[in-house]
Computed example of a mutant assay.
Amino acid sequence: MTTNSQSGTNVQEIAMGIFRINTPVPLPDGSLFSFNQYLVVDDEPLLFHSGPRQLFPLVSEAIASVMPVERLRYIGLSHVEADECGALNLFLAAAPQAVPLCGSIAAMVSMSDLADRPPRALADGEELPLGNHTMRWFDTPHLPHGWECGLMMDTRTHTLFCGDLFTQPGNSEKALTDADILGPSETFRNQMDYYAHAPQTAALLAGLAQQEPRTLACMHGSAWQGNGASLLRQLSVALSAQR
């Protein structure tokens, strides 16, 4: 469903109770790049990635097409970047009961100062029940970049909110695909490598693969469904080949 015809912002359900909010944004070279946020509708709703501050009107409009924005309980982020948490404080103002949700490092070094309300910090492996959904947090330092990085998975639908992993260029009109996303994401990464290539990267990807995700909720590009464990292992091989 398109929620703003001028920007092309749209919202579509990619798993039970989980909605992708997508806005295509033109780059200086004329190509398009997409910014996604993921809304988990439940007793205590979660928005993962706030989007940049300038996208707040579009993202909040899209949320309102599914549920009242003021019902949000958590605003989650993988790491501290504008597209992850630029609109965080605007959402905290719009949703009086909402709190930031992040890993312990992000809470300690950034969110306790940047956010207008104290964050809820999750430890590695900690689970957070939302109602029908339960989110499990994974510390992923330097995967793909900042030391405060972390990812989460809904244990009910096995949807992994994989942040910047598998970033794809383009406007990503298709919300959910089973086509190849590793190839396009690797081509994009080779043009501007945003991975830290830390010593523990392979081990972290192996740990995520053990969770056997069935849907990968990518921050940039189409979400993907299929054997997520296999795709994560393929990503690990591709990264290791370039070290």
Rank of each mutant, 00 (worst) to 15 (best):
T2V: 08
T9S: 11
T9F: 03
A15E: 06
G17F: 04
I18N: 04
I18S: 09
F19Q: 00
F19W: 10
P24W: 00
P24L: 02
V25F: 12
F33N: 01
F35H: 02
N36M: 13
N36I: 12
N36R: 10
L39N: 07
D42P: 08
L46Q: 07
F48G: 04
Q54D: 15
L55N: 15
V59D: 01
I63V: 05
I63M: 14
M67V: 06
P68M: 11
L72T: 14
R73H: 15
Y74F: 15
G76T: 09
S78M: 13
H79N: 15
V80G: 02
A82W: 06
C85N: 04
F91T: 00
A93K: 15
A94H: 03
P100T: 00
S104V: 15
M108A: 15
V109Y: 11
S110I: 00
S110L: 00
M111Q: 08
S112F: 00
R117L: 00
R120F: 00
A121V: 00
A121S: 09
L122A: 07
E127H: 11
H133T: 05
H133R: 07
M135Q: 01
M135G: 04
R136W: 01
W137P: 03
F138T: 02
F138K: 00
D139A: 14
H142Y: 12
L143H: 09
P144E: 07
C149S: 14
M152C: 13
M153E: 01
D154A: 02
T155G: 01
T159D: 09
C162W: 01
C162V: 03
C162F: 01
C162Y: 03
Q168P: 08
P169Q: 06
K174C: 11
K174P: 07
D180C: 11
I181Q: 02
L182H: 12
G183D: 03
G183W: 06
P184C: 10
E186Y: 10
T187D: 02
T187K: 12
Y195S: 09
H197M: 02
A198G: 14
Q200V: 08
A203S: 13
L205K: 13
A206M: 10
L208S: 07
Q211W: 08
P213C: 08
P213T: 02
L216V: 08
M219N: 13
W224H: 08
W224P: 06
G226W: 02
N227G: 03
G228C: 11
G228Q: 14
A229L: 05
L232Q: 04
L235K: 02
V237C: 09
V237K: 09
Q242M: 06
